[in-house]
Design a protein around this nucleic acid. Structure first.
Lengths: 196, 196, 196, 196
DNA sequence: CATGAATGAGCGTTCATTCAT
DNA sequence: GATGAATGAACGCTCATTCAT
């Protein structure tokens, strides 16, 4: 962001811009994300937009930053309710969390992760690592005894598999299907059991 | 495509264009896919390009159509070697096939499926159904007895999970990791066993 | 220039653009030199302009290149009429040449040399050296015998002095004043005589 | 200027602005002279700047006005030291003065005279006349007897010639070359002698 | 008076597409 | 059919200037 918004008026403006930009980005995709339209939707002038954001990409990155924070927060919350005693319960909770994340604004999520370029590769990978953390925990818990060398790979496999399934479901509007959720849980649990 | 190329000369031209376009699309991505560059790379005039393709998107869609056909064919081939007797072997073969598909030109594959817009949703779904066929077979074979109502969902879950894992691997250049392949196989087999 | 104009049509277009751009540049100055106005004045589309010139500066530089060539040519011509026997005649001719150069389009000349940035410093200096060549000749001829170490500096002084006077005259519309011309000639000759 | 600053506080503000603007103008040139940067450098708000100056050009003109006054003052000073008895001494002093003027801040001088537009032509000419005064004196002194009709023109020629040489020298960073200074003095003296 | 957030006309440039040759 | 010069709407972004606080 170009300048820190000090006054209250500025804070409002930045939020207005970000909200409008989020809407436009989700609706149109990165390729058709136009700064002038953002300003129009936000009801402000294009000049004001550029007072707070260095350029188009900077604006989108700020949106992504906030969105991914929210995603990780939501995932964390879904984990730390009452202590989950059974593996089934743990897995169900994780899946619920992931689904919840995609349910909020799947289009935005998709655009932010697949279309908006990552200027720094590291930036995207940092989120990925944090994101996979939950799966690593799951594997650590389910593995009866000693940590295995393949645990790291297993966490990545699990994360990618769940992501793949939830993304596909989101694309088809099946995010709320109980049947699908059950099958996905089976998949995860079966894998964890086999590894134990 | 704008017109069916009847004559041989035209056929050659269409192929030339498609090859050049494929190269450009894979290299530059959809956002930087420029018709003028395609014509230049193909060594023909931009006018000729528009003789055979209605617009930029039409050109990309033709590329996708051909690519997806090739993908399905490759997948089919990987299935019908010598009769696969064990479940492990079947699964390994399927995974090998999927990996092979992504290995050939992962950049192109990615662009075609994630960036180039689907004008008709149906268009993408048709391929998806066919693609899931292999997974349906797997479930049918592994299920000991009677077909279950959840088989259809299971196939979709399995397809999406494998896709997710392989895509993620491709993105990180780990497509050839034997360890990853093994874990992915475990995931699939564990799931199939649990369902049986 | 972006692409070499092969066809006759292109040649015409390039000339049309350059003529319009020259007019606009002379009239408005570099700061208000707008590519869209050039296109409008030329009666062509802005796209066509960018087909032949890489950017605004490239266009201006092409104009400068051609103008400076014309300047040097004019100066050369003014030198090589009948053999000038007397020093007075030589000096008069050189001054006439310089005045003629500025008389054609003094505004353009000014803009091109003082406003349009020189991307490469060398570029401007090359012209300057060639331009000073005439003065170096003059000094060589007028010096009776041995070349002096200060000849080079003297040429620069002479060139800059004549330039300064003619520029100032141009600015005040006195380029045709015979009186001024005579005084300038006296200045030059006096200096040459003193050095001899 | 928009309003005469009566109070002391205002005087300070105006000076602060002008100093900052001078620095920015010299550093960036007229084309990149931005009012917002001036305000920032001055440590005041852009609103305050517009309280005292009607617009960007007005600000630059005020700077020019003050600079040219300083130039004339410096030139006057250089003339009225101890009485200069010989012509050589007089000429040397004048040249020293002109060089000194350009040496102080040649970038600013250049920008102010060549880039910042003169809204009224008269504005520039007034300075020019005063500036030429010193040369008129020189001619008057050196001419043995009766004033000549061409004296006025000669003064202009001399002024423009010296200006041209010093400007060129400044552009090439040769303002301190003793050799150049000597040759310039020879030029001036030779001319004055011839006219006597 | 001072502030600085807000404005918006307008710039340079791109690139999908057309159509005269 | 083939060509490629020509088109022009549309984009991202700047910066002189205003005016509510």
């Amino acid at each position: 962001m170009r300048k820190a918004p000090r006054q209250q008026r500025s804070q409002v403006m930045v939020n207005t811009i970000l909200e409008a930009a989020t809407r436009v980005l989700a609706q149109r995709g990165w390729a058709n994300f136009k700064t002038n339209e953002v300003a129009e939707v936000a009801g402000i002038s294009i000049g004001s937009l550029y007072q707070y954001f260095p350029d188009k990409l900077g604006l989108a990155e700020e949106i992504r930053k906030r969105h991914l924070s929210a995603v990780l927060a939501a995932l964390s919350n879904s984990a730390h309710g009452e202590a989950a005693t059974t593996l089934e319960l743990r897995v169900t909770r994780l899946i619920d969390g992931v689904i919840a994340v995609h349910a909020v604004d799947q289009a935005l999520h998709r655009v932010l992760l697949k279309e908006v370029p990552f200027v720094t590769v590291a930036n995207g990978e940092e989120f990925e690592r944090e994101y996979q953390g939950r799966y690593r925990e799951l594997i650590a818990v389910s593995a009866g005894a000693i940590p295995n060398a393949s645990d790291e790979v297993a966490a990545r496999v699990l994360a990618a598999a769940v992501e793949g399934v939830v993304h596909a479901a989101a694309r088809h509007g099946e995010l709320k299907s109980a049947l699908l959720k059950r099958e996905l849980a089976h998949l995860v649990i079966a894998y964890l059991r086999v590894r134990a």
